[in-house]
Every structure is written in structure tokens, then in C-alpha cells.
Design a protein around this nucleic acid. Structure first.
Lengths: 360, 360
DNA sequence: CTGAAAGCGCTTACAG
DNA sequence: CTGAAAGCGCTTACAG
């Protein structure tokens, strides 16, 4: 339908030059009240909107922020994306979202596309397997992006090397695991099963580290640690819990479960019930992430809140304010434990457990 | 850092004209093997990527699909967004995501921005209050978008009028409500409370209509319908359930609850437990949406699955294949009921309830 | 305060 | 198969 109306059409109808139209619209240069009125009138009459591509080519216009992640439906990813989008919008930027499905080839292709789009920053989200291949890949992204005046932002994943010019926004994953494990230990639990440990994955490794450190801090021998399952999420959590229960014939030695994430924890609660074990009466359970599900189930899950949306916001805030491309910048946001109803003090444990409102 | 490398640089290094470089890269025109090799070599050496804006201006390049929704973290929205993104990616399109926060002014501003970006389609997602203002607004969007060769797609919200040139992708919301209510009726329930009715909101109205129709079909007098609460979600669901229970002093006349959505249903289960009522033994509960939470809680929630991701996919598939701008096109996707463990047959009810696997 | 003109980096008829 | 040139729709020094 109808040919697109251009700045030339507006200029003609307003009886001024295209330069004047451009200036009136940009508002960054003096223009007479008369021209302004005529131009605005013409813009309205013709329902003109500028061509963003032409604007960008000429070196002006709205920039865009790109966020690349495994998928969009995971609560963590969705929250980070939301934070990115909101902060970007606040700064007049548009947000491009793409999912990589953890395919490095696709990820690379997307980074290239974002270079083509002249994205102001490219935000990569979520835990990874940190190996040499990963480090090299990220270093290369950072370099090419910096060369194009853009910026690589690593969100919830580690910096590949100290000298890579990336902006890193993480949360204190290890500390959160330490805190929630300590909470369990403080409540008197000694045998705590860690569910869904993911070897290699940075997120899983950090949680394991926090768990082990808490055990050590409380004098629990490493031999008493119970690790089982691979991977997070509902299915893995259920499977791992069943395995453990099956192996122990429904009478496990451990009295508490630290699930890799809340969805795994929720599934563990179900598996426990199927074995006739009540939470928290017979088994205490904690999760991680403060996923919406943590507040939706009974009992409410004690878990670790991670500032996902804030990470997204911080990612773009820093990307926009930083000296582009130079050096590495790192931000670690705090986590905090959210106490609900899934932990119960054991014997002489402290009274740390059991607080919190019904829906919180 | 480093000046951006352009097609001219590539041409110079390869010893050919920019036209040849363009042709080699586009691959839509014959080029000699020799030139091709030289160009590809130069592209690699210089790490060249084309400027998407210049490409777009010249009338080529990757297009983009825009999706505008209330927010990104709601499970429904996230799923639709995921569907849009995946289908768009499959067709070589990029996806721009923005949240409107249900602010019409912001929505309008975003539609304008998408016109500027020359988005190939603009997808608006989610239920609305359908009044004249809404209809006019959508009609206008459809018109200006069509004039710009783009397309307005309404996803999960009604067409404003039959002649508005929009693409509408809905799901059979009323039928889903009818089915799940009938499931309850089939299990012998007569007094069924509808929780979280949202007057005015199209999604809420349709669910109410399905509920009432099922009641009528089963000969339950309209006077036996119980409607309470405004709005969906955890907080509203909890509040509404508590209200009803408080009013009945914990001994409600109804034996089943149809919550407006799954998160409200999950909260209702919690409220019921606080009153010592077990689900499904003392009260059957069903939800809507097949939100992840439905499978995460105990008992698993019987609910209505809505094809959110498929809606997103259909939205872009149709937008890309349709004759642009012409007329209205409407697609209604089916819903189906997902039976888990939150419904229990009453007295002489049929044996319809109680099936389904542990985690499903 | 305003206009003519160059230029942003591509693509694509038009000649050859 | 290849190149010179026009053109996409803006913005912004440069004159005035």
C-alpha cells in the first residue's frame, strides 16, 4: 500500500527544506517558531515517521541492545530479559532478544548479526561450561564487538580472562549456596543431600562450592556430603530425588535436601511425598533462585533470591555509561536467603527456620 | 576503536568493485569463482560484517518482527515471546521485544517506533479491556502499519472490528473454560466457585462465559454460580479464596473452585490448607493456562492448556506468508484440558478425575 | 535561523 | 561475469 512518506514529502508540504524538517524533529538546533509549526503540522497531516535505518546510517537515531540467552521461558532468563528491556527503554534503546539454545554456532551467528545491527551492547546470559573453547569464544566476541564500538556483557557467567574487554555482571552464587546450606546446618541438619549437581557448569559448580564450604565451616566431614543427579529443573530434580530415595529404600540418612534450583526442589517435594515423607516434618528442603514456584507451592520453599532483573538492568546501565571497549569491568550483585516454610529445626538446632508469611 | 570496515575496504583488498563484493555476499547473482575466493578471503581477513542499516536502506537485508506485551516474565507472555522469536529466527528475522505495562500511550509510542524500524509485523499480546477506545486504537495501528507495508497481529486479544486489516491469533478461551467446568460437573460437582473474575477483561469474560455455559448445559441454575474476586494471579487468587472462606466461616457450600488462572489456583490451594481443607479431598480445584506451576505443586493442578508458544509461532508464520495489509485474517487455536490430581469425584460423579502421571 | 550539498554503506538496474 | 553510478532517507558541517 501507499508509498512510504519521507522527509522530502514533509518538507514539500511544509514549504521548507529537508534540513529544517530534520532539525525540527531532532530538536537539537535552533528553528523558528513558524517553521516548527509548519513542519509539525505537515508531519501530523502526513503521519510521517522517520526511517530508523536512514537515521542510523547517517549516524543518529535510536540504538539497540541485544540480549542472547538459552531461551526466554525460564524464569531466570525472562527476568533478566525484562530487566534489560526496562533499563534499555528507559534510556531510549530498543531491545533485540534471541535464543541460542546453547548452540555455540548459533550464538556466534547471532553475535555477528548484532554487529551488523550495530547493537550498542550484546548481553549474553546464563551459566556455561567454562573451558578453553568458551574462553576463546568470549574473548573473540569481546574483541570484535569492541572494535565495532559495541560492548560484550556477560550476565551470570564468568569472565573468560582478566584482560578480555567485557563487562561482567554476576551474582554471588557461591555465597548464596553457602548461606542456604548454613541455614540448614544452623537448624541442626548435618546430612544434607545436594540435588542436581551439574559438573562443569559454572552455576552448578559455584553452588557446590558454597555447599561444601558451609559444610566445612560447620565441621561436617566431606564424606558426609551427598551429591546426586545431573542438571537442574523439574525432571532432573524428580529423578534425582527418586534415585536417592529408591537407593535408601525410602529411609535416607540425610535429613535435608538442597536442590540445585527451585523447580528441582518442587519436584523433590513431590517425590518425597510419594514416599510418604512430609516436608518439612520428615525432610527439610531448600532451593535456589527464588523462582515464582517457590512461593506457589506448599510448603513455601526456603530459597536464595538472585537479583535477576537487577542484573539485566545493571548490564545495560553499565554498558551505556562505561568507556566503551576499554578493559574489563566486573559487578557482583548480592543474593539473600528467603525463608519460607520448607525447613524444620532438627533436635537442638537454632530457631532459624519457619518464619515468613503465607504467600511470601 | 578501529574504524568500522566497510564494503569499500573489502573491495579494495580483494581487488574488485564493491558491486562484486555485494554480489558475492548476497549470493543472488553469478560471480566467478576467482572473485568469490578473493572476496571471501578479504572478508575473513578484515572480519567484515555488512551494515544492516545500509542494507535495509538500500532495500535489502534482514527484517525484524516486533512483539509488544504487558511484560516478559509472565509465563504466558514469555511463551508467546519464545514462539515469536523461534519462528522469526527460522525465517531469518530478528525479534524486537518491548513491554507496554498496559500503558496505551507507551503502546502507541512503541508502535510508532516499530514503524520507524520498518518492522515487518507488530505483534500485540494478551487480553484487554475491549471498549471503543481500544477498538479505535487498534484500527488505527492496523491502518498505519498496513500503509507502511507492515502488519498488525493481535495475539490472544480480539479483533477490534471485522474490517480492520489485522491478523488475529486467538485460542478458544471460552471452550477451555467450558471443558474444565464440565470436567468438574462430570465429577459430580454442582456448586463451583469461579475465582478471580475480571469484569471487562476479554480473557476473564470469555472464561466466565464458558463457565456459565457449562453450568447451563448441566442444568445448574445460574443462581448457584459463585463469582468472586477481581483479577488473576497469586495475590488475587489468595485474597479471593480467603474472602470466600472467611465469609463461609471455613465451611463453604461450594465443593469445587475454578480459578481464573493457575497461579491463582495455586494460591487458592494454599488458602484452603490454611483453613484445614485438603485438595482434592475436601475441595476440588482447577486452574487455567497450564502454567509451569500447575505441574510443580501438589496436588498437580488440573487445568486448561493454552498453546501460547504455538500462538507466537502462528502469529509470525501467518504474518510472513499473508498478503500484506489486505483484509482481516483470523486463527483460533485449540485448547485442551490437562488432567492431574486436583479434582475428586463427588458422590455419584463420573470417574473422570484423578488420572495423569506424577509430574504431568 | 535556513538551505544546498555531501556523505553514511549498502544494492541494483544499466552498460559492457 | 564485472564495474560505474544512481539511489535508498536521513543528518550535518558549510555557507549564507
Amino acid at each position: 500500500m501507499g508509498e512510504r512518506v519521507t522527509i522530502r514529502d514533509v518538507a514539500a508540504r511544509a514549504g521548507v527544506s529537508v534540513a529544517t524538517v530534520s532539525r525540527v524533529l531532532a530538536g537539537n538546533y535552533p528553528t523558528s517558531t513558524a517553521s516548527r509549526a509548519k513542519v509539525l503540522r505537515a508531519v501530523k497531516d502526513l503521519d510521517y515517521v522517520a526511517n530508523a535505518h536512514a537515521r542510523a546510517l547517517a549516524g543518529a537515531g535510536r540504538k539497540t541492545i541485544a540480549v542472547l540467552m538459552y531461551d526466554v521461558v525460564g524464569a531466570f532468563y525472562a527476568q533478566v530479559a525484562q530487566g534489560v528491556e526496562m533499563e534499555a527503554a528507559q534510556h531510549g534503546r530498543l531491545t533485540l532478544v534471541s535464543s541460542t539454545g546453547s548452540d555455540p554456532a548459533r550464538e556466534l551467528a547471532l553475535v555477528q548479526m548484532m554487529r551488523e545491527q550495530a547493537a550498542e551492547a550484546v548481553v549474553l546470559v546464563g551459566g556455561v561450561t567454562q573451558d578453553d573453547e568458551y574462553r576463546q569464544r568470549m574473548a573473540r566476541y569481546a574483541e570484535v564487538l569492541a572494535a565495532a564500538g559495541s560492548r560484550l556483557v556477560l550476565c551470570g557467567r564468568p569472565a573468560p580472562a582478566p584482560d578480555v574487554p567485557a563487562l561482567v555482571v554476576e551474582y554471588d552464587n557461591e555465597a548464596g549456596a553457602h548461606a542456604v546450606t548454613s541455614h540448614l546446618l544452623g537448624a541442626g541438619h548435618r546430612r544434607i543431600a545436594l540435588l542436581g549437581y551439574q559438573p562443569g557448569n559454572t552455576t552448578g559448580e559455584d553452588r557446590l562450592a558454597g555447599y561444601l564450604r558451609a559444610l566445612a565451616d560447620h565441621g561436617v566431614p566431606r564424606a558426609d556430603a551427598v551429591l546426586h543427579g545431573v542438571g537442574f529443573g523439574q525432571n532432573h530434580g524428580y529423578r534425582a530425588m527418586r534415585d536417592l530415595l529408591d537407593a535408601a529404600d525410602g529411609k535416607p540418612e540425610f535429613t535435608a535436601v538442597f536442590a540445585g534450583d527451585d523447580r528441582a526442589a518442587a519436584a523433590a517435594v513431590i517425590a518425597l511425598r510419594e514416599y510418604g515423607l512430609r516436608v518439612p516434618e520428615d525432610m527439610s528442603v531448600v532451593g535456589y533462585n527464588d523462582d515464582p514456584v517457590a512461593g506457589d507451592i506448599t510448603p513455601g520453599l526456603t530459597t536464595v533470591h538472585i537479583p535477576a532483573e537487577e542484573m539485566g538492568r545493571t548490564a545495560v546501565r553499565r554498558a551505556l555509561s562505561g568507556a566503551s571497549g576499554t578493559g574489563q569491568e566486573r559487578h557482583v550483585l548480592g543474593t539473600h536467603i528467603v525463608i519460607r516454610h520448607s525447613v524444620r529445626p532438627l533436635r537442638g538446632g537454632s530457631a532459624a527456620a519457619g518464619a515468613g508469611g503465607a504467600l511470601d
